[in-house]
Simulated scan of single mutants.
Amino acid sequence: MPIIDLQRRMRQLGEIRIGHVVSGVSKKGTAYTRPAKLNHFRFTSPSREILASVAALYGGEVQPWTPANGGPSEFEVYSTTNRLPVLIPPQNAVSQWYELYAGSKCQRRCDGVTEHKADRPCMCNPERRDCSITTRVNVMLRDVPALGQWLLVSKGYYAAVELPPAAELLAQAGGYVAGWLGMEEKLVQRVEGPARFMVPTLDVEITPAALMEGQITGAPAAVTAGERPAIEAAAAPAGPPRDYLLEAKQAATQGEVLAIFQAAKNAGAPVAYQEQIKAIGLSKPAAAQNTPPAHHDSVPDEDGAVDAEIVGDDDVEDIWFQIIAAAGPLGLTTEQVEAQFAEQNSGQRPATASAARLREFLAALKAVRS
Rank of each mutant, 00 (worst) to 15 (best):
A178N: 06
E317P: 04
K265L: 02
N82S: 05
Y101C: 05
H296N: 15
L332S: 05
Q63F: 03
A235W: 04
E227I: 04
Q172V: 06
N266Y: 09
P270M: 00
R9A: 12
T33L: 00
Y244P: 01
I133W: 07
R42I: 13
E74F: 03
Q7Y: 07
A235D: 09
T135C: 05
R48H: 14
G24F: 01
G226Y: 08
Q254C: 06
P293C: 14
E232I: 13
G304K: 08
Y58R: 12
P300S: 11
Y157D: 12
H295T: 15
A353V: 04
A279T: 05
Q91A: 07
W97I: 14
L211Q: 02
A173K: 06
E168V: 13
D313C: 10
N290Y: 15
E227F: 11
R136E: 09
Y101L: 05
R120D: 11
D314N: 09
E360Q: 13
R109F: 13
Y78N: 06
G60V: 01
G347V: 09
R142Y: 11
P350G: 08
V316S: 14
R11K: 00
V204E: 00
T217Y: 00
L282I: 14
D315M: 09
Q336E: 08
M198K: 03
V271I: 13
Q250K: 01
V257Q: 04
E335C: 04
E227W: 10
G226F: 09
V139R: 03
A263S: 06
A159C: 10
T253Y: 01
L181Q: 10
S354N: 02
A166V: 09
E227N: 03
K28Q: 08
S132N: 10
P126T: 12
V137I: 02
P2Q: 08
M10H: 12
D130E: 14
E302C: 13
N39C: 03
G70Q: 04
V77G: 12
A326L: 06
A52P: 00
R42E: 10
Q262N: 15
D314Y: 08
I280Y: 15
